[in-house]
């Protein structure tokens, strides 16, 4: 099938600059993520958990939000979401190296437990799906005040088995909350495949039980993800209630730096996922549309490398927390 060459993505209104920005965010996330693994394998970072393979979905969806106005309760893979909203590689390198200046938590939490007051990114813990309820609450508060802010939460497909996922979606639907719930389905909850999480074909099938739209989207296509999220956000802003979006993505790394996926994931499957890497796909699509000129992709990657190099130097020079600061911020009066 011939691909129509156009510098504007059909039906989304995204112009060439917006699509280049999408690609740049995807590359920044990938380059940063790869660097985190290098630091881990060098023994300089005790723990890494990855967004590789999720970048297209995360960037496309996050670009449908108003940073600092809308509310976001992400999960541990949402590195690219945080970059689109305005967090930086430096922020996350400070967290990875457990430095005092980590804006997520002052390095009290493991890396990838995102949070940023300025950007309305709600601090998350390690228990999965609990954040769905916090997003519902943020959405409820916006509704009570009559604002048109929305709340977006994201989680893995395994987390849809948790009670808080059910309780949150049911609550959001009953009270018609401006919520967008994104399931980033990469097929595995650490080692357990989707078939052992649910007897439905898609996670989005569950939306029917809550009386809300359930949308399945190609998570390797950032424009499709943007379009799905934009529709859900518009619906939520108009007071029409929540939407469940399931983005089919690939997990190109083991669950975390402490996992070995060879035990449960066939190498051919991984090779196929890598052959369809969302970064390659989007680069090809943008080059075919002449949104990226020859050499642009290399320059974007080089630029991201320079940003991460500089951030790493800065993070390594940053101080660790003072031991006794462990006592602070238990209560407001501390």
């Amino acid at each position: 099938m011939a691909v129509a060459k156009t510098s504007r993505a059909p039906e989304t209104g995204l112009d060439a600059d917006a699509m280049r920005a999408m690609y740049r965010h995807m590359v920044r996330a990938r380059v940063l993520d790869e660097r985190l693994w290098v630091l881990n394998r060098q023994g300089r970072a005790p723990f890494v958990i990855s967004c590789q393979g999720h970048e297209a979905a995360q960037v496309g969806i996050a670009m449908a939000l108003r940073p600092g106005y809308d509310w976001v309760a992400p999960y541990y893979r949402d590195l690219a979401v945080t970059l689109v909203l305005g967090m930086t590689p430096l922020d996350h390198l400070l967290a990875t190296l457990a430095r005092a200046g980590d804006p997520n938590s002052g390095s009290r939490q493991m890396p990838a437990h995102y949070g940023c007051r300025r950007l309305n990114i709600i601090t998350g813990g390690s228990a999965v799906a609990t954040q769905v309820l916090h997003a519902c609450g943020a959405a409820l508060a916006a509704k009570v005040r009559g604002e048109d802010a929305v709340a977006l939460t994201a989680l893995g497909e395994g987390s849809t088995s948790e009670g808080d996922f059910h309780e949150g979606l049911n609550f959001a639907a009953v009270h018609s909350l401006p919520l967008i719930c994104v399931v980033e389905n990469n097929g595995f909850a650490i080692s357990v495949p989707w078939a052992k999480q649910s007897h439905t074909k898609d996670a989005a099938d569950r939306a029917k039980g809550y009386g809300m739209p359930g949308v399945v989207v190609d998570g390797g296509d950032p424009i499709a993800c943007y379009a799905a999220a934009r529709d859900a956000v518009e619906r939520a802003r108009r007071g029409k209630g929540p939407t469940l979006i399931e983005a089919k993505v690939a997990r190109l790394t083991p669950h975390s730096s402490d996992d070995d996926d060879r035990l449960y994931k066939r190498r051919e499957v991984l090779a196929d996922e890598k052959a369809h890497d969302c970064l390659l796909r989007f680069r090809t699509a943008l080059e075919e549309r002449s949104v990226l000129a020859p050499g642009d992709a290399e320059e974007i990657r080089a630029e991201a490398m320079r940003e991460v190099d500089k951030a790493l130097d800065e993070a390594e020079a940053a101080p660790l927390p003072a031991p006794e600061s462990a006592l602070l911020n238990v209560y407001a009066e501390d």
């Binding site: 509310w71 309760a73 709600i122 609990t130 769905v132 309820l133 916090h134 997003a135 519902c136 609450g137 943020a138 959405a139 409820l140 508060a141 916006a142 009570v144 709340a151 009670g163 808080d164 309780e167 949150g168 049911n170 609550f171």
Partner: peptide, 13 residues
Amino acid sequence: SAIVGVAIGAAIN
């Protein structure tokens, strides 16, 4: 869990 979890999110916002 929703009663408390939603209250937490509302308090944050």
